[in-house]
Amino acid sequence: MSDLNTAMIEKYRNSFLHEVEANVEEGEWVKMCMQCGVCSGSCPLGNAWEHPPQEIFMMIRAGKRDDVLSSDAMWMCTSCYNCIARCPRGLPITHIMHGLAHYAKRLGLAPKNQPTAKFAQLFWDNLMKKGRVNELKLGLSLYFMNGFGEGIKTALKMKNIGLGMLKTKRMSPAEAFGGHGVKDISGLHKMIKKAQELEDARIGQSAK
């Protein structure tokens, strides 16, 4: 268990809702949920959620901290924004789900081997290298994210899709060597480092 997690448990012993409000992106909206269930019914992957959004909101208020943060529910969000468009109370549900997923990851509570959690991290790491996404490397790292053996199997299964993309020049082997990127990469890295420090400080402050 991470130190930050221990500190947060200590600090917010009596209210997981307060913890979410203080530390999760758009978390201050959670208390506005009126449990109508439109979000859960509108979610294209609704049946794949261990706990649909409406339930997550109630669980937060009920203090079910571990059940929420270690759930793979939020990682089922496809970012379709149906829930946001339909929520009668105007909750930015998509963003709250992203925020919860990020917070769970930050505390080391996100489920291990959750495919979207892994892919989402690969995506971030990929774009951070050069400031722009390298689709070829991202695709390959995705195929091999569960080890070499499975990677080869996936790569074979995807072979024809890859060939189609190559033929239409929508994929380029040249991207394996360098590839696109921003010129001021050092400025971008310094900017992100600063943003991370400011955010870490804000969340660290809240644990005290």
């Binding site: 892919f119 989402a120 995506f123 774009l127 921003v182 971008l188 943003a195 955010e199």
Partner: peptide, 23 residues
């Protein structure tokens, strides 16, 4: 000039709110 990735809708695992907004 020199635009960067917006981190799309899947950058949230590694990127917190402020780093993503900064992009």
């Amino acid at each position: 000039p020199d635009w960067n990735c917006c981190s799309a809708s899947i950058g949230y695992a590694g990127g917190g709110e402020l780093p993503r907004l900064a992009l």
